[in-house]
Design a protein around this nucleic acid. Structure first.
Lengths: 121, 121
DNA sequence: ATTTTGTGCAACCAAAAGGTTTCATATATT
DNA sequence: AATATATGAAACCTTTTGGTTGCACAAAAT
């Protein structure tokens, strides 16, 4: 089973959990209480976050306090960063590209016998 | 079924597809050829990307050219941005927090009769 | 000592995800 | 006209997800 940051933050419940423990360490039950689903369901989400290193757990008596370790988010923002240029500069380049392709076409597609071959249905 | 950017980029195949069409518009088959799985499988990924507005499609004869529309990634980087402070400043605050909690404990745990001993929120 | 609380885990379930094969159809190509 | 190509979609299958209930057990609290 995949266990990476991209996968981890894909789920809205997990993003909410991260948000909660980002501001303040909380024990498992405190986190679970914020949601409608069962504690176990939330715990499973938390386990995924633990397994991919996005939250840290420390036992404290019978409680376990969780804290967000958000450094891993760099992996995501780095990935995004490399594309920033594309949506800041290359606006609507598809149409341009196709227009150019259109002009070239006569050369590449020249092998037509004659004009309108078929009725356009 | 959820159809948001977070979910869209969670899959590595879809990230790869985005990467391909970010640099140059490509038709469906060209994209599919780069992968081991079937064209249909890739098309399904592309459909998801189309549905959440991350790629744009333009018919060109019998081919359909796809281009990445990466603006949506702002949604993700904005979400991450709000947490940047947490992993640049609050290093290992959990231990600190627990130490403080340890000191307070005798005080905080004292109020029992009055209910609402629900953990810190 | 007994009960309550906080937690983890197993067993089970329905739905979604990701894949395959097959078919239909419109557009080229010959 | 006949064939090849590019694509979309349906039907089906397996694995993963996200959820549930129930039990076990250690640490408080009574």
């Amino acid at each position: 089973m995949r266990r990476d940051v991209f996968q981890a933050i894909a789920d809205p419940t997990r993003r909410e959990i991260l948000n909660m423990v980002a501001y303040q360490p909380l024990n498992v039950n405190s986190v679970a209480e914020h949601f409608d689903v069962s504690r176990t369901a939330i715990y499973k989400h938390m386990k995924i976050l633990i397994e991919c290193g996005m939250i840290d757990i420390k036992q404290q008596g019978r409680e376990r306090y969780c804290e967000a370790k958000l450094t891993k988010l760099n992996e995501v923002s780095d990935w995004i960063e490399q594309y920033k240029q594309f949506w800041t500069t290359k606006l609507d380049s598809l149409e341009q590209y196709l227009e150019e392709l259109q002009k070239e076409k006569p050369i590449t597609t020249k092998k037509k016998k004659n004009g309108t071959s078929k009725s356009t249905r």
